[in-house]
Design a protein around this nucleic acid. Sequence first.
DNA 1: GCAAAAAAACCGTCTAGACGGTACAGTAAA
DNA 2: TTTACTGTACCGTCTAGACGGTTTTTTTGC
Lengths: 184, 184
Amino acid sequence: MNAKADDTRDKILDAAQDILVTQGAMHLTLDAVAQKASLSKGGLLYHFKSKEDMMVGLIHRQIAGMNQELKDQVFNDPEPRGRFARAYLNVAYQKDECENPSQKLCSTLIAVIANNPKLLEPILTQINSIQERLQNDGLDPTSAFIIRLIGDGIWFNQMLGIPVDPDMIANVLQRVQEETGSCL
Amino acid sequence: MNAKADDTRDKILDAAQDILVTQGAMHLTLDAVAQKASLSKGGLLYHFKSKEDMMVGLIHRQIAGMNQELKDQVFNDPEPRGRFARAYLNVAYQKDECENPSQKLCSTLIAVIANNPKLLEPILTQINSIQERLQNDGLDPTSAFIIRLIGDGIWFNQMLGIPVDPDMIANVLQRVQEETGSCL
DNA sequence: GCAAAAAAACCGTCTAGACGGTACAGTAAA
DNA sequence: TTTACTGTACCGTCTAGACGGTTTTTTTGC
């Protein structure tokens, strides 16, 4: 069955993700991932034919997860104008530390950049797509760009593990909320 | 003489930096650095007793360079109110691609995070210092924080090698220019 | 409905090479 | 004599990936 294989693949990617978040990119080895996924190294390499292949799988899954989050946020926002912008900021900063897809994506990013910048392509595509959607969000281009930079800044801080003050983020989100209502 | 030694140390750090920017953190090996610096591996280890030691040296030099840039920018800005904020954005984004200290710092950052998060300390100190200086820049706290995030966002993009539209950056800078004159 | 064949999923060891770091003998200049 | 190196040989460790074999699942033939 394909479901079993998909399940195993997911387990492998979960393990890789966990190692990236908790131990850093340097400790992401095939052995470590296999062990954490309760699998042999051979089993791992059956599903992903190389470490690079595994990283690609991880990137794609992360991006898909992020897009789902964005979709949900947009869906739950009744005001069309600027709702993608708000969604982007909300996804970039999520309060619950454990299940933060943005931070996971960040950890993945670091690993990718450090080990194989060629794998950045799908991520760049995603970023371009976000920029485009921001531009078509009913805001003027400069405001859209500013919001993107703010979101990226939040990412950046989370990536470095810098504790960002939740109250401050709330202030920023509120101001954006107000300004996207008018014009920013 | 001490000048000779300092010169060699600088040459070594230049080489390390160059490898980081052009090839990525994975290719930063002692052998590669020594070769690029036209030096033997033994010679390198004479100046830096370990790879970690070399990284620390690199971080410190980068931070010093950035602070010098900030100082210069602030010095050349006649309007006291918000001039550190403007300086920060200007340093984060520099047009001339070759000599961009911000991008070099970014590459170093990645290497550090990926290989030894313990070395982040001096960088976190720097970031906190920047945040503090932004807060004492005559702007309200939320505006200051927003500007920091924008600057970090610019960093983030440069770090990923994402080509940011110079015109857009100019627009952002101009708006900040206008707003820091009034209140943002 | 069931056995045999085939394919999929997985195990665990082995190897070749890279890398950080050490040791040390020697050299050249200040 | 000290400082600033060169250059080589070497060690221990780590890691990606290859490989041959084994178990489990699915498909096929009857």
